[in-house]
Deep mutational scan, measured.
Amino acid sequence: MAEQVALSRTQVCGILREELFQGDAFHQSDTHIFIIMGASGDLAKKKIYPTIWWLFRDGLLPENTFIVGYARSRLTVADIRKQSEPFFKATPEEKLKLEDFFARNSYVAGQYDDAASYQRLNSHMNALHLGSQANRLFYLALPPTVYEAVTKNIHESCMSQIGWNRIIVEKPFGRDLQSSDRLSNHISSLFREDQIYRIDHYLGKEMVQNLMVLRFANRIFGPIWNRDNIACVILTFKEPFGTEGRGGYFDEFGIIRDVMQNHLLQMLCLVAMEKPASTNSDDVRDEKVKVLKCISEVQANNVVLGQYVGNPDGEGEATKGYLDDPTVPRGSTTATFAAVVLYVENERWDGVPFILRCGKALNERKAEVRLQFHDVAGDIFHQQCKRNELVIRVQPNEAVYTKMMTKKPGMFFNPEESELDLTYGNRYKNVKLPDAYERLILDVFCGSQMHFVRSDELREAWRIFTPLLHQIELEKPKPIPYIYGSRGPTEADELMKRVGFQYEGTYKWVNP
């Protein structure tokens, strides 16, 4: 592979701008107003304001973009700056750019259920340069409990009458099928589907988006991507930290609602779906819905739930269990780990287990898709061969690698495990991989909904998990304890083995 010439960040961002501006969906010269509902909250200060700053800094926003914060707290732009700027990672050389960014910011205080507050917000936006005809993007960085009041008031008082209007809704989209349907029906009564952007930030990850290209742009994968060759698929999300004093919020939802029903299920769809007619948003989402419709409700015998306990040999936070978090209700049975087996009941995947695993306070930070292939028929190497695996590593250190057998150097035919490896950090030294939120917010500006969740996708996802969630809430089974920093409950490994996964433990990928 030829040595790549190092590029400056300015040059890299210039390439990104060229890609972005050559499309006809990006209205570079139009006025846009980006409204952050819930501007005083954690999500706004840690993710949304920093993301908008990065896009502005790199010249990736339309030229005439204004940012308006809205929340109940009586704040000023200076207050917003004070709480969000520490997350910007701005350099001293960017000081003038930073001043320009905050000059485009404003803030309006108001209630979430008060019509007069929204009329005041609308008047404020109209007073901005060309504000009355601007395109408006409303980001709901809010708890779902206020979605209905907020969307109703936005629709009645704050819509642009000339430009387009788009609304970005953060997960969780309800707690179960019934609450999700209620919320979807409410929002759909106010906005068209092409105006609604239900954001799952995992769909903005580079390697998640790469799944489609790997599958449908490489001839070698087509013939082997089926039940005849693939023994099982494992989708993993692991965090090495616990709730760390923020367990009160987590306890309301648990690990299945927080990660599995959305992030992991979306990745499953991209692995299992048929080739779409095109890369058009609805063509892709149509195929994802077909996959979900082929999955039956989760069966309790295919589920393992766990909850982390303190590690007596650990240090600091590792010595504390979930129930030691003062914000967690006493005696909570909320799971911090889950392993679930699903089956896609169609011709391509009949009988292939899709194993979804996620948890907190585990032994490493990792998100990946792992396809394990069947054993080689007619073994001539005296059971020395391990199964081939194709691994798409989402985070950290984005990579695609194939675990395969090669001859060990020497005189004899002794096979050993090795890999074919594409590590993004080595291959793409001159490429700026956008943060997931950067990519998705740019998608909203461009009107691309491919990486957002459609209402029928959402409904099918909740259909699969709601009976299990209701059973857990009714019966309150005690989750299996696992030690902070471990791989999780051993019962999860036993479940995976029972459905056909072979864990060798003899080879570990190392970032080159």
Rank of each mutant, 00 (worst) to 15 (best):
A6Q: 14
A6G: 09
L7M: 12
L7R: 12
R9N: 15
R9K: 11
R9W: 10
R9H: 09
T10V: 11
Q11E: 15
V12L: 14
I15Q: 08
I15S: 08
I15L: 10
L16E: 11
L16D: 14
R17T: 07
R17A: 15
E18V: 06
E18K: 15
E19C: 15
E19M: 10
E19T: 10
F21H: 09
F21E: 10
Q22G: 09
Q22C: 09
Q22S: 15
G23I: 15
G23C: 11
D24K: 11
A25F: 13
A25Y: 15
A25D: 14
F26R: 10
H27I: 14
Q28E: 07
S29F: 14
D30N: 14
D30L: 13
D30Q: 14
H32M: 06
H32V: 09
H32C: 08
I33G: 03
F34T: 07
F34L: 08
F34N: 00
I35V: 11
I36A: 01
M37D: 01
M37V: 10
M37A: 12
M37L: 10
G38C: 03
A39V: 04
A39Y: 02
S40V: 03
S40M: 03
G41H: 06
G41Y: 03
G41W: 04
D42R: 00
A44T: 05
K45S: 11
K45Q: 11
K47I: 03
K47D: 01
I48R: 01
I48V: 09
P50N: 06
P50V: 04
P50C: 06
P50G: 05
P50M: 04
T51F: 07
T51L: 02
T51C: 09
I52F: 09
W53E: 00
W53Q: 02
W53P: 02
L55T: 08
L55W: 01
F56C: 03
F56R: 02
F56D: 01
F56P: 04
R57H: 05
R57V: 06
D58G: 07
D58S: 08
G59M: 07
G59S: 07
G59F: 05
G59D: 08
L60N: 07
L60S: 04
L61F: 09
L61Q: 03
L61W: 06
L61D: 00
E63D: 14
N64Q: 13
T65M: 11
F66T: 08
F66Y: 15
F66M: 08
I67C: 08
V68Y: 05
V68W: 02
V68K: 03
Y70R: 05
Y70V: 14
A71M: 03
R72S: 00
S73G: 07
R74Q: 15
R74N: 13
R74K: 15
L75Y: 14
A78H: 08
D79I: 06
I80A: 07
R81N: 07
R81H: 07
R81V: 10
K82H: 13
Q83N: 07
Q83M: 12
S84N: 09
F87Q: 08
F88C: 10
A90E: 06
T91I: 10
P92S: 14
E93I: 11
E94Q: 12
E94A: 05
E94H: 12
E94R: 01
K95T: 11
K95F: 10
L96C: 13
L96P: 12
K97N: 06
L98M: 11
L98F: 07
E99D: 15
D100C: 11
A103Q: 15
A103M: 15
R104G: 05
R104Y: 08
R104V: 09
R104A: 08
S106V: 13
Y107K: 01
Y107D: 02
Y107C: 09
Y107V: 07
V108P: 04
V108D: 02
A109W: 12
G110L: 03
Q111P: 10
Q111G: 10
Y112W: 07
Y112V: 03
D113V: 08
D113E: 11
A115L: 15
A115D: 14
A115W: 11
A115E: 13
A115F: 12
A116P: 14
A116E: 14
A116Q: 14
S117D: 15
S117K: 08
Q119R: 15
R120I: 14
R120A: 13
S123F: 10
M125Q: 03
M125T: 14
M125P: 02
N126P: 05
N126W: 07
N126K: 12
A127M: 12
A127W: 11
L128P: 10
L128Q: 13
L128M: 15
H129I: 13
H129A: 12
L130E: 15
L130V: 15
S132D: 12
A134D: 10
A134V: 09
A134Y: 08
N135G: 08
L137N: 05
L137E: 01
F138I: 07
F138R: 02
Y139V: 05
Y139I: 05
Y139L: 06
Y139M: 08
Y139S: 07
L140I: 09
L142Y: 03
P143S: 07
P144C: 00
P144G: 02
P144R: 02
T145M: 07
T145Q: 07
V146K: 11
V146M: 11
Y147R: 01
Y147C: 01
E148Y: 08
E148V: 11
E148I: 11
E148H: 12
A149H: 14
A149E: 14
V150D: 04
T151D: 01
K152L: 15
N153K: 14
N153D: 08
I154T: 08
I154M: 10
H155M: 09
S157R: 13
C158Q: 06
C158M: 10
M159T: 14
M159P: 10
M159H: 13
S160K: 09
Q161K: 15
I162K: 14
G163I: 00
W164C: 08
W164L: 11
N165K: 05
N165Y: 06
N165R: 08
N165H: 11
N165P: 03
N165G: 09
I167L: 12
I168V: 08
V169K: 02
V169G: 04
E170P: 01
P172M: 01
P172L: 04
P172E: 06
P172H: 00
P172T: 02
F173A: 05
F173Q: 05
G174W: 01
R175M: 12
D176C: 12
S179I: 04
S180D: 01
D181M: 10
D181K: 07
R182E: 15
R182P: 01
R182F: 11
R182Y: 13
L183E: 01
L183D: 02
S184H: 06
S184E: 01
S184I: 13
S184W: 06
H186V: 12
H186A: 13
I187H: 08
S188F: 04
L190E: 07
R192I: 09
E193R: 00
E193H: 03
E193T: 03
E193D: 02
D194N: 14
Q195W: 07
I196G: 04
I196Q: 06
Y197Q: 04
Y197V: 00
R198M: 06
R198G: 00
R198D: 03
R198I: 04
H201L: 04
Y202V: 01
Y202T: 02
L203C: 04
L203G: 03
G204N: 01
E206Y: 09
E206P: 08
E206I: 07
E206R: 05
M207Q: 07
M207S: 01
M207G: 06
V208N: 13
L211H: 04
L211E: 01
L211F: 14
L211S: 00
L211M: 15
M212N: 02
V213A: 13
L214E: 01
L214F: 10
L214V: 14
L214Q: 11
R215G: 00
R215S: 01
R215Q: 01
F216K: 04
F216W: 07
A217V: 04
A217T: 11
A217P: 02
N218W: 01
N218G: 01
N218H: 03
N218K: 00
I220Y: 07
G222Y: 10
G222R: 12
P223Y: 08
I224L: 15
I224K: 03
I224T: 12
W225E: 00
N226P: 02
R227Q: 09
D228A: 10
D228P: 06
I234Q: 15
I234C: 12
L235T: 05
L235H: 03
L235N: 01
T236L: 05
T236F: 05
F237P: 03
F237H: 09
E239Q: 04
E239I: 03
E239A: 02
E239L: 03
E239C: 05
P240R: 07
P240C: 09
P240W: 08
F241Y: 15
G242D: 05
G242M: 03
T243S: 14
T243L: 09
E244M: 14
E244Y: 12
E244R: 09
G245D: 07
G245N: 14
R246D: 03
R246K: 00
R246Y: 02
R246W: 02
G247A: 07
G248Y: 04
G248N: 06
Y249N: 00
F250A: 05
D251T: 06
G254V: 01
G254T: 04
I256G: 03
